[in-house]
Design a binder for these strands. Structure first.
Length: 712
DNA sequence: CGGGGGTTTT
DNA sequence: AAAACCC
């Protein structure tokens, strides 16, 4: 029988050679006790609601829900007492709790920042911290515990902090599981630190692997912790009401298991491994079986800086190219600012859409991605986000056209823009080399102190995203988008957008906006312009769809001028300098990380090895050498001048862009022409850097991570 | 399901 | 590139 493993704990054989018994003589237990890992799972209580209650303490005593679109994604415990649950429709939630106060939570900025502060705090105790979403972290505290074990002389202190699963009276547990007991103390200290330094409460689960730590952490729900002893593993695992509750068993896997007749955890425990292998293949089958047994040897993998940054929005309907363009522009704008703050240079851009479908309304996203030309990537990292936006828009529209045939009707319900393949420029050679301070002469990063109570917002021009909170819970306020001083190109882009978002709803309200529906243009708006006047390269089908003012501009002398700027001898006006795009406050300065409390008991060897002193990451590669990141798919420029566009620039896409964007693009192309080389050479192998994403490059990754942490 | 993110596996 | 998983 293959399920005859010892159920009282995980299979320890693989750990014997990794964690040898540190104190052979002091182990009073003659039974060979495995050198167990000690894993903690931290889970913040209703995280978004807690963040909002910190931002606006007036919300602390009211039933509070965090709203995204038509959904209450989470709520505080006051609201839960009245029947509100996570992921409940707003209408249902209001029925349950008419006094429910809702705060918009579509903009994740504050949650993301607080989330990384929590991770940072955990990392100050030990480097093995793995994030799971914004509100959960795993920590492998095995080494901390082993160290405390050697330093603790009194066995009477091997008692537990907090709950012990299945043990009402914890007296009978004292002394029997010193590592887990010490783990519970560590967890309690860390939770207290999270509370005192960040003002957040949460649960913790302490166990011998990630699976069990996660399963046990929610046993006592708000703001408590629970330790799981090995003798209760089978208990907790078989108490799960369905296989779906097993982390790692998702909807699809649960369905496939059900097709095999398996619904409960014990069904899976007892099921033939051979048959499981037939369904899932060997690795997955083994993993599933192990999960059902509470066995999980997966390591706590330090998460480090994120592998991708994305920004998305869902909506009832987008069905015109113009609206697609506007939405992508809006998303890209905020994504570019985030990317710039990150400091790394993205090598890949991806556009994802979700199409409406009556059946299968959820599900089914499609995406296309492309490399980001180096010169654009450098714009991003250097902070020329306006210019980067203007240059990324055509790329995005190209990707869009790869997915959507605009000659037929289409109906999108979601758009996502994503940067991935993020490259640090930090030199991996020397550790904290001063030389890496060489930087572009671009604006020095502000290392202003960051006030967590700052009301400052980013003036997100995109509609619908409100970052403010409101002092009075029941008031409704609206304001128009503040128009800041913007570059010329931004002005056009804003004008392009204006119709759609006349105002941003701000603040807290239990009354809902009528809807988030997209304002449609009058269909006859565009009728009166003679198509025969269209400039060359403008597709009439696309033209028809553009806003009137854009159409007029396309037909105006200004447009001809910009076209003719391609001709030899004529110069386009240079790009607007725009020195003053007010950047949101950065939170780059992490020098004053307060780690003293955490370090008090650690010797220097405990310092996280992946944690490097913060370096100014601004070193911009100074040379644009001939080898850039372009592939055969990239823009390239024919020497022969019988075509106005670089090859691979779709005239259709180009014509869809606002005139100012077109101008800036053409100006860019002119500037880059001499640098670019013929597209012939397919990149030779590039030394195959063997992207070992996590384990390798830790130094640079840790460096980047700091961007996600605010200075305290 | 839904939302606005993420990662890993196929 | 899609689909699975997580929150």
């Amino acid at each position: 029988m293959e399920n005859s493993e010892d159920e009282a704990g995980e299979d320890d054989t693989e750990w014997k050679n990794i964690f040898t018994d540190p104190t052979p003589g002091s182990d009073d237990n003659m039974i060979p006790t495995p050198a167990h890992r000690v894993i903690v799972h931290f889970d913040l209580d209703c995280f978004y609601a807690q963040v909002e209650m910190i931002r606006n303490p007036a919300l602390k005593n009211v039933p509070l829900g965090i709203q995204q679109k038509n959904i209450v994604v989470t709520c505080n415990y006051v609201a839960r007492e009245q029947g509100v649950t996570k992921l409940m429709f707003v209408t249902d939630a209001m029925e349950k709790c008419p006094q429910l106060v809702l705060v918009k939570g579509e903009d994740l900025t504050h949650y993301r920042e607080m989330s990384y502060k929590v991770t940072e705090l955990l990392m100050s105790y030990c480097p093995l911290v793995e994030r799971l979403g914004f509100d959960e972290n795993f920590m492998d505290i095995t080494e901390m515990v082993e160290r405390r074990l050697t330093q603790t002389h009194e066995s009477h202190s091997y008692s537990f902090k907090g709950h012990v699963y299945n043990h009402i009276n914890t007296d009978d547990t004292t002394g029997k599981h010193p590592r887990l007991a010490l783990g519970s103390h560590v967890a309690a200290e860390v939770r207290e630190a999270i509370h005192s330094k960040l003002g957040l409460t949460g649960c913790a689960g302490i166990a011998t692997n990630k699976l069990l730590a996660k399963l046990v952490s929610g046993t006592f729900k708000p703001n408590q912790q629970t330790t799981l002893l090995p003798e209760d593993v089978s208990n907790i695992v078989s108490c799960l009401s369905s296989l779906r509750k097993v982390p790692g068993v998702g909807h699809q896997t649960a369905k496939r298991l059900q097709a095999l007749g398996l619904v409960s955890v014990s069904d899976l425990q007892l099921f033939s491994l051979a048959e499981l292998v037939r369904e899932f293949g060997s690795p997955s089958a083994q993993r599933l079986k192990n999960l059902a047994l509470g066995v999980d040897d997966s390591p706590v993998t330090p998460t480090g800086a994120p592998q991708s940054l994305s920004d998305e929005d869902s909506f009832k309907k987008i069905s015109s190219t113009k609206d697609v363009l506007e939405k992508i522009q809006e998303l890209l704008k905020s994504l570019l600012e985030r990317m710039h703050k990150d400091g790394r240079q993205p090598q890949t851009f991806r556009l994802t859409i979700r199409r409406y479908s009556a059946t299968n309304k959820w599900f089914s996203r499609e995406s296309r991605q492309c490399p980001i030309p180096n010169h654009i990537g450098q714009k991003i990292t250097s902070g020329s986000t306006d210019s980067a936006l203007v240059q990324l828009l055509p790329l995005a529209m190209k990707l869009f056209h790869k997915m959507v045939d605009i000659t037929a009707a289409f109906h999108l319900t979601l758009i996502n823009v994503c940067f991935s393949n993020l490259h640090s420029r930090a030199a991996a050679t020397g550790k904290c080399s001063i030389t890496s301070f060489f930087s572009h002469s671009t604006s020095p990063r502000k290392s202003q102190s960051y006030s967590s109570q700052s009301q400052d917002d980013f003036s997100q021009s995109g509609g619908g995203q409100s970052m403010d909170h409101q002092s009075s819970p029941h008031s409704i306020t609206q304001r128009t988008v503040a128009s800041k001083n913007v570059s010329a190109s931004e002005a056009v882009l804003h004008g392009f957008t204006r119709k759609q978002s006349p105002a941003v709803t701000v603040g807290v309200s239990h009354l809902q906006k009528p809807s988030c529906s997209v304002v449609r243009l009058n269909p006859d708006e565009t009728c009166n312009i003679a198509m025969s006047q269209l400039p060359p390269n403008v597709d009439p089908e696309v033209f028809k769809v553009l806003p009137e003012e854009i159409q007029k501009e396309l037909l105006s002398p200004a447009y001809s001028n910009s076209l003719s700027s391609f001709l030899p001898g004529k110069n386009t006006s240079p790009q607007c300098p725009s020195p003053s795009n007010p950047l949101p406050q950065t939170f780059t300065n992490s020098q004053n990380l307060n780690r003293k409390d955490a370090v008090d008991e650690l010797d220097s060897s405990d310092r996280p090895t992946t944690w490097n002193p913060p370096l100014q990451p601004l070193g911009t590669s100074t040379a644009i050498h001939g080898e850039d990141s372009m592939t055969e798919e990239e823009l390239s420029f024919p020497r022969s001048s019988d075509c106005e566009f670089p090859v691979n620039v779709d005239p259709k896409v180009f014509s869809e862009l606002p005139p100012d964007v077109q101008k800036e693009l053409m100006s860019e192309w002119k500037q880059h022409k001499p640098v670019l080389k013929a597209p012939s050479s397919k990149k030779p192998g590039r030394n195959s850097v063997t992207k070992d994403k996590k384990t390798g490059g830790q130094g640079s990754q840790a460096n980047s991570l700091l961007k996600y942490f605010k200075p305290s």
